[in-house]
Computed example of a mutant assay.
Amino acid sequence: MEDITNRWRKLKLTDKEAPEMKLTKISTKENTLAGKFFTKRKLSIEVGACTFRNIWNTEKNFEVRDLRENMLLLIFKDEVDLEWAIKQSPWTFDKYLVALQKLDEDKSIESMSFNSSPFWVQLHNIPLRMMSKENAEVIGSTIGKVEEVDVLVSGQGYGRFLRVRVKVEIGQPLCRGRLVDLEDRDPIWGAFRYERLPVFCYKCGKLNHNERDRQGKSKSRG
């Protein structure tokens, strides 16, 4: 879909509309997030605010404003609470994903796109001698943008699997794993397990709908 800037360039402007206006920049100095609820039912601001206040239990209160289309503006009194909410994501409502995004002061609300969300992904079946931060980043980069790797200070992995936090594209099928080249042995299947995974479709692998949703769409078209 074309953005607003591209659309107005194609319009024939009147004498009042054509001159460009200069606006003064201000700094909001607010700790603000926008949240997009991917639930299939219409969300009220009261339900959204109550949900977040119950599950977050922040040290200080935060203000909630309705942006419509299942979007809320969350204004925090304390930046620590905001960073904690992002760090602990992904969040869900009705088992559907809630995507959070920091506001960019140089962009409008309408131009915001909620097309990705961070997930902790477990990388299973990786041989002990290859469980390292470097290898986790290599594998994780095939899933999305790597944000963090859960390893020891030395960079060595530990436990039964590697953990890597990556930004996953919401509109793309989830990657189930990768073939891992062991050089001196046959390749093995490195299986991925997504922590706190919301509703997704086992058939197409995409988030925010399941087979029941697909069946509902098919019936409505019929």
Rank of each mutant, 00 (worst) to 15 (best):
E2Y: 10
E2F: 09
N6C: 13
R7C: 08
R7L: 14
K12E: 15
L13G: 05
T14N: 08
T14M: 03
E17R: 06
E20H: 11
E20Y: 12
E20R: 15
K22M: 10
T24G: 02
E30Q: 15
N31V: 11
T32Y: 01
G35M: 15
F38I: 04
F38T: 05
K40N: 15
R41K: 15
R41I: 12
L43N: 03
S44F: 02
V47S: 12
C50I: 07
T51K: 07
R53S: 08
N54W: 05
I55Y: 08
T58L: 09
E59F: 08
F62D: 06
F62N: 05
E63H: 09
V64W: 04
I75Y: 00
I75E: 01
F76E: 09
F76P: 03
E79T: 14
V80F: 13
D81T: 12
D81M: 05
L82D: 00
I86G: 00
I86F: 12
K87R: 11
Q88Y: 15
T92E: 06
Y96V: 01
Q101W: 00
L103H: 07
D104P: 00
E105L: 11
D106A: 13
S108Q: 09
S108G: 13
E110R: 09
S111W: 01
S111V: 03
S113Y: 05
S113F: 05
N115C: 08
S116I: 01
P118K: 05
F119I: 04
L123C: 10
L123R: 08
H124S: 08
N125Y: 11
I126M: 13
I126E: 06
I126Y: 09
L128A: 13
M130C: 09
M130P: 03
M131C: 09
N135W: 09
E137K: 14
I139P: 04
G140Y: 04
K145N: 13
K145H: 12
V149E: 00
V153R: 15
G155V: 06
G157N: 07
Y158V: 05
R160P: 06
R160Q: 10
R163N: 10
R165W: 00
V166T: 05
E169D: 13
I170W: 02
G171F: 04
Q172T: 10
R176W: 02
R178W: 07
R178N: 12
V180G: 01
E183V: 14
P187W: 04
I188S: 01
W189T: 08
A191E: 14
F192G: 02
R196T: 13
L197V: 00
V199E: 04
F200M: 07
F200I: 01
F200Y: 14
C201V: 05
C204F: 06
C204V: 08
L207P: 00
H209G: 03
H209I: 05
G216I: 07
G216C: 03
R221K: 14
G222I: 15
